[in-house]
Design a protein around this nucleic acid. Sequence first.
DNA 1: CTGAAAGCGCTTACAG
DNA 2: CTGAAAGCGCTTACAG
Lengths: 357, 357
Amino acid sequence: MNGSPQPGSHLSTPANMADVAREAGVSIATVSRALRGRPGVGEATRTRVQAVAERLSYVISPEASHLSRGETGRVAVVVPLLQPWFYATLVSALVGHLREAGLDTLIYQVDGAQERGRFLAELPARRKVDAVVLAALPLTPDQRDRLDLLGVRVVVAGGRLRDLPHVRVDDLAVAHTAVDHLVGLGHRRIAMVRTSDTDETPWEADLQRARGWRERMDHHGLGPVEELLVTEELGPRAGARALDRLLALPDPPTAVFAYSDELAAAVAVRAHERGLRVPEDLSVMGVDGHPVADLLNLTTVDQHVAEQAAETAATVIALVRSRAADLPGGVDPVAHRHDVVLDHTLVVRASTAPPSA
Amino acid sequence: MNGSPQPGSHLSTPANMADVAREAGVSIATVSRALRGRPGVGEATRTRVQAVAERLSYVISPEASHLSRGETGRVAVVVPLLQPWFYATLVSALVGHLREAGLDTLIYQVDGAQERGRFLAELPARRKVDAVVLAALPLTPDQRDRLDLLGVRVVVAGGRLRDLPHVRVDDLAVAHTAVDHLVGLGHRRIAMVRTSDTDETPWEADLQRARGWRERMDHHGLGPVEELLVTEELGPRAGARALDRLLALPDPPTAVFAYSDELAAAVAVRAHERGLRVPEDLSVMGVDGHPVADLLNLTTVDQHVAEQAAETAATVIALVRSRAADLPGGVDPVAHRHDVVLDHTLVVRASTAPPSA
DNA sequence: CTGAAAGCGCTTACAG
DNA sequence: CTGAAAGCGCTTACAG
């Protein structure tokens, strides 16, 4: 069946297990065992089979192997967008860890409520993967319910969703840390700047950070603060517009807490353009641990994305393994163990200082 | 065969084609035709089958379908790293286009010569995908030869490799454009800054940009320039170190052409730290069209990454389709058509100006 | 228009 | 230690 190459193709048909078996003079069952490192094969036989496989540059067909075993060896990672630093970093680390565990990664980008709806409606991941990682996706209640129809294990990274296992930082505490830092420096007018998707669906991390900021301002007796909360539509000019609005207030803030480092960077650059010195005239800080914060020397709350990815990968791998082992008992120990909340770290740099008198 | 749920699992076993066939009172052959939209099924039958599939929330098993059809519906995208803006942007756009064509994307990160060697040695993509996109990977001649063993079609994005179909910008011309811009402003001492991997393997875009810079400096009678070429190891401090070295020269440059926008940004920030005004004391420009260049108002040569991705996707899709159609003739029209060189664009911003007298 | 059957390339009890 | 055979879930000539 593997005779001459197909016409029209310069790629020769790859060998299959039957070819190896024939060349090695054994059955395909033995080839399978030998190559998968399963017991029950003589050492000499195993060596011979491996040599033949090597010579024919044969590798086991994942398609067939998985069909037979009822698993795919693949994990889907679903992100709103791949480009932003947070997602690129998260996915990059995830891919690395999953690869080490022998799992391939399939990427799905579902930007906007419509795409998310379509994704869940079409269930594209279904049967294509052993598990799905949802990276901080805002979902409607209805969409959450549809998750079960995916028919695979789901892990949430960078947020929380229903009772699914998840890995995240405590965004409420992140905001508290930021506000405490600025209050500690002597600021009393502390603005919060964030961006909105064009999307209606609430984004949990965003809600929590805004809530944490509000809570903590009240806690320090600095509320009410609603006029200091500015939301701009996501885009390269969001930070500039937000700062312009804040500076137009009768009593402008002396410090800005931005939802992300990218936003903080844009605010800091805009401050320069407006002739304000950072931090003398305005303190600026963000959240993430983004390289741009390092480059521009901005204070930030590092949310350790690489660690979040590592924990997420560990959770996924455990789930896949437990399914492979088909654990008895009706209870899934893994799912109940994994509500992982990682620490965040305040990184003080040159963009925050006491307000000038 | 799809009786009660497995013990230990709260996920019910998904229906298979046989379940649908039984419920609809037809053979699995008919189910297959009906669901795949193939001809030869009565309209009433098709409708009924679709209704049953819907009710059982059945979707065709990609594993089985692909095994049967001899294709996977998947494309592998191989990048050195996913995190840098260029790769994140390229992959993000690729995933989108491939998805529209019904193809899933598998991500492989092969950072460093060792990983690349291992990737090619283990041929992980083999039989897992219908095609592979190599994103600007520096490969040794030996590794290039091993590509054939992948057993799948290969397309190169952001560079050129052997006789493989590829999509790229002309990096020689990119450097010419940059040098011409700076010379046109009156600069005569124009440095080039770049980063090296720890890696020995030559990176084509890098070599081309350096060569183009050198060529064009000579062309304008401004050579020899070797002392103005600074290579620093990749990292967050590369730009700062590079500028420090240039400023230590007896006759420092008045303009810096950086390999990338990220590097240009680091150089510009370092210039500020050193008390130099940009562009009055030093002109700085990069390559990419990176958001940070926009943020910091840096002149750049935009290499239109999204368009490169679109062309790459189109090439891959054509290759996959042509293979599916099993074109006769021994010649592959697609492979020979696709040496796509896209235009680049000079974007002049505030970081370049005539040198001060 | 429809079905029985072979085949895609494996894995794994089961029986030696 | 090894093999024959059933099965994973499809697709597709082939024959009605």
